[in-house]
Design a binder for these strands. Structure first.
Length: 479
RNA sequence: GGCGCGUUCGUCUAGUGGUCCAGGACGCCGGCCUCUCACGUCGGUAACACGGGUUCGACUCCCGUACGCGCUACCA
């Protein structure tokens, strides 16, 4: 499908909670679409629910978007600041008789709904105030009777072409006269979105599937106002492992949480893009630029997707191992510092050491925090030794003898990977033993663990002093 | 309950009537590499929800059933 030359899209989160994965993906799709078509990607904060909205939340949403690299164009729009404009729109509809005041109280509405639920199950507004005489309306308003404004839904049906759902058809019989302006003068979502999307020149509304049912109401509003109706694209939901809407119950669901867990923004973006969208070929690992280049609404799937953290973890690991080492040092630094392994000065003053550190580790870890959790021995001598590894490779009397034999040899070995390897293998050879029998105890002595990067590379990086010291420490602890 | 939307390996997906005894990826299992782990590499496991049509032929089109999700607020 052809897309007009310079589309304008927006991401419109409501600041009732931090940015969650579903919202992040919606933002991403909007961003990709805008960039792909040379359009504009705008941001609007939908805070018309004053009770539930919080300003601090807005800042965290912005921070999440920035972290993911989704830069929006222009200034962000704060919906609540446009209240007068929304109100004017609602009053205009009233003047045009497309809306009318409704005096039903929350309480009577609630009661009617309750009864309806028990009987017909039809809980829609019954239209009590739809046909009120103008005279009565004026009088009741003069009396200061509290009222809302409801949209007068016309007869007929609304049909629209959704860019991912194809044709969607809804009979107006299933709609009711919904509220557009609250009794306190605050506009309701339905009215506010339409006014803002129109004023912002939005051409394509790309949003979550949960808005699909609202779309006919909004289209009716556009039509009542005589405004052009934008294109819609409803993206399916992201589900939890139980196939229900993703919720906090199943661990982390916010972008923030993934950031804090040591994920790279590239990985999250890449993974989210693949969740509900496919480039059509078999590519899996893609940069933001590649995503922009390949993105199209046609590639969006119709069915909801289950969020699978193991694939995200894999992607994160692949991206880490493919990343530039200098950049990786920067990314890993906060984790190393926070865990107290080292400090900024050391990192700044030992760039070569830091680069070797990430290079030895980056292929075998999957999250940034693993640098700290699995690479502590690059910064401090082991103070405890892994039980399982000891049982397997240390609890034999020869281990001590082997390490003792190694000590003087290592004192005079040239400190290169090749020389170290030659030394150790030769020592094992001379005893007619397998090199592994020497390597494993050495690994435990140097790292405290049964697994680590290649032992000779590791020893080369750690340096002679550190290696000799660690062997001696280990010898003291040998059974 | 009503309305809307959806249903391909455990998960993400490719597939737009014959090229599909269904392809890729994650996961899982096994081989190779090897000082361990990881990487890499080779191979394996595993799916068209069900029932009716339409058609020479259906994963692909139509209808129904089941299941799931969403909406049904003076929430967004």
């Amino acid at each position: 499908m052809r897309v007009q030359r310079n589309p304008v899209v927006r991401f419109a989160p409501s600041p009732t909670g931090v940015l969650h994965l579903g919202g992040a993906r919606t933002a991403l799709f909007n961003y990709l679409f805008a960039r792909h078509h040379n359009g504009r990607f705008l941001l609007r904060i939908e805070d018309t629910d004053r009770v539930r909205s919080a300003e601090s939340v807005t800042e965290s949403i912005l921070e999440s978007l920035r972290w993911m690299g989704l830069k929006w164009d222009g200034d962000m729009i704060i919906q609540s600041r446009r209240r007068d404009r929304h109100k004017a729109f609602c009053f205009r509809l009233w003047e045009m008789k497309r809306a009318y005041p409704c005096f039903c109280t929350l309480e009577t509405l609630r009661r009617k709904r309750e009864i309806a639920e028990k009987n017909s199950g039809d809980t829609r507004y019954d239209g009590t105030c739809r046909g009120l005489e103008e005279e009565e309306v004026r009088k009741r308003i003069q009396n200061g009777e509290s009222h809302v404004l409801r949209f007068r839904v016309p007869e007929g049906e609304t049909v629209f072409q959704d860019r991912v759902r194809e044709r969607v058809q809804v009979s107006h019989d299933t709609l009711d006269d919904f509220v557009i302006l609250r009794s306190d003068g605050m506009p309701v979502y339905q009215a506010a979105v339409v006014v803002d999307d129109h004023d912002m020149g939005i051409t394509h509304v790309i949003r979550g599937d949960d808005h699909l049912s609202n779309t006919p109401k909004q289209i009716l509003l556009y039509q009542a106002a005589g405004w052009p109706v934008p294109c819609f694209a409803h993206v399916p939901m992201i589900l939890g492992p139980d196939k229900k809407r993703l919720s906090k119950r199943y661990g982390a669901t916010s972008v923030e949480a993934y950031r804090e867990a040591g994920y790279l923004p590239q990985a999250l973006v890449n993974y989210l893009a693949l969740l509900g969208w496919s480039p059509g070929d078999n590519r899996e690992i893609m940069t933001l630029d590649e995503l922009v280049f390949s993105f199209s609404l046609e590639g969006i799937t119709k069915n909801p997707a289950v969020f699978d953290e193991t694939k995200l973890v894999w992607l994160n690991g692949r991206i880490i191992s493919g990343m530039d080492s200098v950049e990786l040092v920067e990314k890993a630094a906060p984790w190393l510092i926070d865990s107290g392994l080292t400090d900024e000065d050391f990192i700044r003053n030992n760039p070569q050491y830091m680069i070797r550190f990430v290079e030895l580790l980056k292929d075998r870890i999957r999250k940034l925090k693993d640098f700290a959790e699995k690479g502590g021995y690059f910064f401090r001598d082991p103070d405890q030794y892994d039980d399982k590894a000891c049982k397997k490779h240390w609890k034999v009397p020869e281990s001590g003898i082997r390490l003792k034999t190694l000590l003087p040899l290592l004192k005079q070995t040239e400190w290169t990977v090749e020389a170290l390897e030659k030394t150790v293998r030769k020592a094992a050879d001379e005893q007619q033993e397998n090199a592994g029998q020497w390597i494993h105890p050495l690994r435990i002595a140097l790292t405290g663990f049964g697994v680590s990067p290649g032992i000779f590379e590791l020893a080369a990086v750690l340096g002679r002093d550190s290696v000799l010291r660690r062997i001696q420490n280990a010898l003291k602890r040998l059974p």
